[in-house]
Every structure is written in structure tokens, then in C-alpha cells.
Computed example of a mutant assay.
Amino acid sequence: MANETTIPLLPCRSLDDVAPFYQALGFEVTYRQERPNPYLTLRREDLHLHFFGMAGFDPADSYGSCLVVVDDLVAIHGAFADGLRAAYGKVLVAGVPRMTRPRPRRNQEGHSGFSIVDPGGNWIRFVGRATQAETGDRGGLARTLGNAVVQGDSRGNPGQAARILDGALARPDAADDPAVHVEALVYRAELALQLGEPEAARELVGKARSVPLDDESRARLAGTLRHAEDLLKALPHG
């Protein structure tokens, strides 16, 4: 057999929840019906997602998930982030819906990935087809950060991820590699937002900003530093 196509069919509470969110990400609605059963089809280039509505469905109870392999992980994440900023005034980094940022995943053999948690509570997991996997074990804070990412980004357990990182960040050698230190602080700030701790998030972003970086490290961390600004925009006012 050849030319097969598999399309995820995912649950949601309401089509009115998921349609505007995915349209902000650049999807178009290709079909929609309300009766006899709510059904929605979405398309973004070669990526198709279908949704069915369930009255009384709680997104927190969703086990819906799918894996999307893409050629350019950074480009599609950037396009999604721009769409969220245009539609919502910020990148959604906490709550439901939300989007993580590309990070190496220890449970994906070091390949980078990011996830979208949509309004139906479904996890759309993106991984780069051509990304070079991180090899070797740098140990220390870098290894701990990788373990935290597995818990927070892959398994959806920000509390456990925060506990893992807190122990490592408290060690005297946490700042030995400034670039990794910044990555860890910014990720911990993201976890704080997910855990409903905005002041802790603000403090962690401040610490990340204060880490001295050379020009090479600052250029390499451009995405992380922009993400830190997105975290500040996501903080509640007042």
C-alpha cells in the first residue's frame, strides 16, 4: 500500500473553543457541522486535524494526543508564536490552551520538540524530522534540565519538573555554565506560571536577565531570551 493518510480525530467541549485557536495558528476551517453531531475539520498545508464535540467534556480529562513530524521545527514554532501574539497579544504559555517552546527531549533520543495543548486539552506534539539530536551527557544542571523537560513538557507534570529544577538551581555549581543557567531559570519561570505562581515567575525572569553572558552566548540564547519576554507579557497585571 502507498499514499496512505492518517488524520487525528480529537475531542473537544465545543467547536467554538478550538476553531478560533487553530485559526490563530494559521489553520483554515475546511468543514464544520453542528448536527447531528458537532464535527470540525482543520487544515494547515499538509497538516489535518479533525475534532468532535462532546457536551460536558472536561479538557482536564483529555487523553487526546498526536505526534506531528515536521521538516523545520523552529520555523513552524515561530509562525505559531507570531499567530498567537497577533490574536491574543502574547504567546500562551500557561493554562489551557498553551504552547511550549522547542527543547531537546531526553525521552526522544535528544531530538528537539515542542507541544501545543489546545482548548480541548489535546496534546499536539511536534518533533523535527531533520533536527540533530543532542548527544553526550553534559551532566550537572544541563542533565537536570533535560529531566525536568521530560516531566513538564512531555508528561504534563509541572510540579515534579519544578521540584527537580529547584534542587539543582540551589546547588553552588548551578551558575558554572551561564547559558545553561539562563535556560534553567527561564524554564523554571515558565513552570511557575503554569503552577499559578506569577511573582515567582517574575523573580526568576529577573534572575535570568541578570546572568552575565558573552556575545556568543547571548546570540545562541536569543530564542530563550525572547521567551523570557513572552513570560513577562503573560503575567497578570496589577
Score class of each variant (00 low, 15 high):
25 L>S: 04
62 S>Q: 06
32 R>Y: 06
52 F>D: 01
97 P>L: 12
27 F>N: 00
77 H>G: 03
82 D>K: 12
71 D>M: 09
62 S>A: 13
25 L>W: 05
94 A>W: 14
98 R>L: 08
64 G>F: 05
52 F>A: 04
51 F>R: 00
38 P>N: 03
90 K>L: 10
96 V>P: 03
38 P>R: 01
49 L>E: 02
98 R>Y: 06
85 R>S: 14
45 E>P: 00
75 A>H: 12
66 C>S: 13
40 L>H: 01
75 A>G: 09
75 A>D: 13
43 R>A: 07
61 D>W: 06
55 A>M: 06
40 L>S: 00
71 D>T: 12
63 Y>D: 10
51 F>D: 03
92 L>V: 12
63 Y>H: 10
35 R>A: 06
77 H>T: 08
48 H>P: 02
68 V>F: 06
77 H>A: 01
61 D>Q: 15
49 L>Y: 08
59 P>T: 08
102 P>W: 12
27 F>G: 00
51 F>A: 00
44 R>T: 01
83 G>T: 12
77 H>W: 15
53 G>A: 04
51 F>N: 01
91 V>R: 08
40 L>E: 04
91 V>Y: 07
75 A>S: 12
57 F>K: 03
78 G>T: 10
71 D>R: 10
37 N>D: 07
85 R>L: 13
50 H>M: 14
46 D>M: 03
89 G>M: 14
72 D>Y: 11
41 T>Q: 10
75 A>Q: 14
45 E>M: 04
89 G>R: 14
93 V>P: 07
92 L>N: 13
31 Y>L: 00
82 D>H: 07
71 D>H: 09
85 R>P: 09
72 D>W: 09
27 F>E: 00
97 P>G: 11
53 G>L: 04
31 Y>N: 01
88 Y>D: 07
35 R>N: 02
43 R>G: 00
100 T>R: 02
52 F>T: 05
78 G>H: 11
40 L>R: 00
79 A>F: 06
33 Q>W: 02
44 R>H: 04
86 A>R: 15
41 T>H: 03
88 Y>W: 08
82 D>P: 01
47 L>P: 08
76 I>H: 11
26 G>E: 02
94 A>Y: 13
64 G>I: 04
27 F>K: 01
62 S>C: 14
37 N>K: 09
50 H>C: 10
76 I>T: 15
52 F>E: 06
77 H>I: 07
49 L>V: 05
60 A>L: 13
54 M>A: 08
89 G>H: 13
86 A>E: 14
34 E>V: 05
89 G>W: 12
84 L>T: 12
26 G>L: 02
39 Y>V: 04
99 M>W: 04
66 C>T: 15
47 L>A: 06
30 T>K: 05
80 F>Q: 04
32 R>N: 00
73 L>Q: 03
72 D>T: 11
102 P>M: 08
31 Y>D: 00
74 V>F: 08
86 A>Y: 07
32 R>S: 05
100 T>W: 03
76 I>Y: 06
34 E>T: 06
48 H>D: 08
90 K>H: 15
42 L>Q: 01
